[in-house]
Design a protein around this nucleic acid. Sequence first.
DNA 1: GTGAAAGCGCTAACAA
DNA 2: TTGTTAGCGCTTTCAC
Lengths: 346, 346
Amino acid sequence: MATLDEVARRAGVTAATVSNVLRDRGRVGEATRARVLEAVQALGYRPHLAARALAEGRAPTVALMVSSIANPFYPEFALAVERAVRRNGQFLIVCNTNEDPLQGRAYLDQIAGTISEGILVTNANLHLPDLLDVARRGVPVVLCLWERPDAPPDGLPCVAIDFREAGRIATRHLLELGHERIGVIVGGSASGVQAARYDGFVDVMREAGLDASIVAAEPDSIEGGVRAAGRLLDAHPGLTALVATNDLPAIGALHAAADRGRRVPDDLSIVGITDIHLASDTRPTLTTVAIPTAEAAGLAVELLNALREAGGRSDDASRVRIASLPRLVVRGTTGRVRRGSATRST
Amino acid sequence: MATLDEVARRAGVTAATVSNVLRDRGRVGEATRARVLEAVQALGYRPHLAARALAEGRAPTVALMVSSIANPFYPEFALAVERAVRRNGQFLIVCNTNEDPLQGRAYLDQIAGTISEGILVTNANLHLPDLLDVARRGVPVVLCLWERPDAPPDGLPCVAIDFREAGRIATRHLLELGHERIGVIVGGSASGVQAARYDGFVDVMREAGLDASIVAAEPDSIEGGVRAAGRLLDAHPGLTALVATNDLPAIGALHAAADRGRRVPDDLSIVGITDIHLASDTRPTLTTVAIPTAEAAGLAVELLNALREAGGRSDDASRVRIASLPRLVVRGTTGRVRRGSATRST
DNA sequence: GTGAAAGCGCTAACAA
DNA sequence: TTGTTAGCGCTTTCAC
């Protein structure tokens, strides 16, 4: 690995000049410039990013904390973040906390402010105090997927998406199709991270004067969805539709319906939230409410930049960035309610 | 961010001593040691990894090049690699080449030898010459998922998995269940990266004196599997079983069968290769041949370490690491062949 | 046992 | 337009 000095020597100039050429700082003569570039070429010189980072006082990477890659949403989001970060000339370090706050803490301690310039956090089971700690050390920290635009977290900048509205959109879609007996599956615990989506469901059901109490919470996975939907369908045979707060459980619901011989969408409509890739690869394909993932990723990176420029401190004005509204994607799992479609009334 | 010097000053010693304490170099008095640790504590000192890397001449991260995260296998593999890398005290940088060799090249140029100590490559559409270039600069490069243990790549160390045997295992399983008319779906092109798996299929079929020519190649995705299986099933109604060279197309085959009213496994058996998470979340659950993903990830990281210690050069003895054999995981998509199960003979 | 000094590869004033 | 100097935060001989 050739160094700046070697290039400089070969070109008969000094390291500073080479640096200037490479950074396009201007104020370099055409002739020297050419000689330098020739030397760079000849030696196959590549800037040492770590050295540059140390000198500049800023790191070339951004870290993304995720809790698990078992959930296919995170890789999709990570990909979107990677793109945004690259556009910014940086690299992405993926930190898998494995649902373990201690491991998350360990990551933060080592990375924040040393090899990563900023920390992007998805729902990674991190303790908020740990994050605040890091933020206080002057390292930009951004929460990427905050679910309540109206109630931003205390002291941390975030990108918020109106997931409550997503819950409303999903539910409204079913009402418009004539459904009235609708159950809801919550991924995670009912008071957990997906609670806002559930609240959206309740909003619309109450407003329509319908029963919003048919709910089952299970882990946010296909398997969880199978169990939750199974319980709901068995206990309430009159249900004609199901809202799931996430696509994975929605897909599980699809399986649970098949297990019971209920045809989707003829006998049962199902709608999810997020629109992961997999949603268009089920049979039938999943109707869902799409979340602006790529946009959120871009906003998060922008916010990180803004924070850095502000020296880690953020004025309240720029603390929350709100992504555009979720939107309905109608596919194959929802249809008009049919009289007598359910086994019997609850 | 407190620095070593600040800690030293507070403890009334010099930076060198603090460093010695922190690295557990011994030769430090108990009293000073205690004072230093106290100062570290009080100041909340964290070593600056970039600075340390520069001084030590080695980077704290390893890079993993992947072509796309759309294929759920890669995140699973990335997770396994991340664990192995962490065990090694390093961090993982995920580089998404987006199937674009140019982007891959750009990544290599910037990262290799500067912020990443080694490069792990999955099938990332990289030009081999580019990789050799990097390797020649003394940066350890390891190919993680080489499909032909008997034919290692020229000049690059690799972790090999016997995918041909995986193809054989899948096919043998079907033969043992009495199937004789079996089609094969190749993910990617027939001569592409999954060719070894296909060869395994051919081995076993030929050996049994059966027709090994019923093959369809489509992109390595669920959608591709739907198309490939559809074509096969329509052209050869007598087929009783399908081997797919990957789980994704196998899942697609499941859909194609459903679309045609063929029940799995009663009318049609399907077996995949890899055993991604999703394989146990389909209906019915997918019989497949499991690849030792985590083991391969661990071996790759070990190989990278060995290379680094050898200064980037590898003797032939340590150039190829072979992971253990794939193994059959019988689930719900395969069953005994039933007379007259197919629509009609081909 | 502890400190002084040099250097990792680069950038950024400031001088010339 | 180019060179000089200092320094980013750390490790590592080598003296003391």
